[in-house]
């Protein structure tokens, strides 16, 4: 899923200075699963905005709504009438949701309530880890299912680097060294070929370095 976390409130407050009627739009997709932007978080934020505005001595209306996924044009469109009743929208979707809502009403300010963080999952309750950087050219089949792009701080293809110590990454001892794990897993499987060969430079043009990406599926297109 797309993992996100709430923006610090003061940052949001800065953007909401002139607002009078705020619509807080939650999303029932990924951000609801990681408990950053679902229905409950939207209601909390709406209450928080009211409380903050009240304390500032200029009360604001703040209303929470939620759609199953903001990244579907139909669901995004369905928020149009509610958006019309507000003067500012705070989207608790990922960056995709914010962008889609902004397209629904290009004349309106649609603010991000979250920082969209990474493609990852829940490793234990309340702990989320990055697993995919969406580079557009998956190599997990050769690296034992452990991604050197998403999980090596230096994006190494011929690791581990000299900073790998006791299976930990030099950048953050809380983080496992991806290449240590790759080496262990492939060795255990008896698949050391990839470790020995000189992995060639990656083609980053599929990774967003080639410009914004677009996929067209003729079989699905209308």
């Amino acid at each position: 899923m797309i993992v996100a976390q709430a923006k610090p409130f003061p940052e949001l407050a800065q953007m909401l200075q002139d607002a009078r009627r705020v619509l807080v739009a939650g999303c029932g997709g990924c951000v609801a699963v990681c408990q950053a932007g679902g229905e409950q978080e939207a209601r909390i934020l709406a209450e928080a905005i009211r409380l903050w505005a009240g304390e500032q001595g200029r009360p604001m209306e703040a209303r929470a709504v939620v759609v199953p996924r903001q990244c579907e044009p139909e669901w995004a469109q369905s928020l149009g009438p509610a958006m019309d009743e507000a003067d500012v929208v705070v989207s608790l979707g990922c960056g995709v949701g914010v962008g889609f809502l902004a397209e629904v009403r290009p004349g309106m300010r649609v603010l991000p309530g979250l920082n969209t963080s990474f493609g990852g999952g829940t490793v234990s309750p309340g702990v989320f880890e990055e697993r995919c950087r969406m580079c557009g050219d998956c190599v997990l089949g050769r690296t034992g299912g452990i991604c050197p792009v998403a999980r090596c701080a230096k994006n190494l293809w011929n690791g581990p680097c000299g900073g790998s110590a006791d299976g930990r990454c030099e950048v953050d001892p809380q983080v496992s060294c991806a290449w240590h794990q790759i080496a262990q897993r492939l060795t255990a499987r008896g698949e050391t070929g990839f470790l020995e060969e000189i992995a060639p430079p990656k083609d980053w043009s599929t990774a967003g370095d080639g410009g914004p990406r677009r996929i067209v599926r003729e079989d699905l297109a209308s």
Partner: peptide
Amino acid sequence: KGVFDLDSVQ
């Protein structure tokens, strides 16, 4: 922003 387009071996 770290570049790391290549690694040392490459």
